[in-house]
Amino acid sequence: MSEAVQPLLEVQNLSKHFGAVRALSDFSMQIRPGEVVALAGDNGAGKTTLIKAISGVYKPTAGEIRLKGEPVSFSTPQEARDKGIETIYQDLALADNLTIGGNIFLGREPMRRILGVLPVLDRPKMAQAARETMALLDFHVSRMEAPVSNFSGGQRQAVAIGRAVYWNAQILIMDEPTAALGVPEQRKVISLIHQLKAQGRGVIFISHNLQDIFAVSDRIVVLRRGVTAGERKISETTHDEVVKLMVGG
């Protein structure tokens, strides 16, 4: 059934070598709309190399990336972003001293004119867009004029996701989105990912936390030393099996 839907993203036989080091060999995966795919693996397994290749930071040595069936090749992260692939980094990439709106519109600020002449930043529009976007993620923040440094880790994570959503990202790559958060905050992020899924976006979710992976993902792809160690549907696997795939046993 879901096999019939065209995948949002297909990665085929992707390899990335750094000199003699094969960071990623012959890797393939796909993501359909509304699907959350977890990427698991020990440190150095190739997860970071993979997402950097998908998001335009690295140029793959070999292989193909297809977006909605179209082969694509990105030479900068900006190109990937323009096509709707957004990476939410661990360090959040927020400017702490700006408002939520200021962060969402960073680098693409809307302007309006006072008295028809003097151009000024359109803060009301930014605040409005921020409020709507955050509501879309079921996050209700009252003070739109406060800098994001005032918000909690989970809220800030939501702002980073909100920015991607506002600019219509179709595929969100989330690198350890729950790593630096307390348990209640982790739950919020998990519920955020559920929201993204419900909106038909694709999510690549990288985590060390198996509980989170099992809570939110549809499939899990396990990497080991640059190759696929296994791919399972979450509903058909267990923690034990995943751990075995990760450490190789």
Partner: peptide
Amino acid sequence: YAIGANVQAARRAGI
């Protein structure tokens, strides 16, 4: 302001 707070963020935002 953005550059002063987080150069990385500003760069990634295309500034």
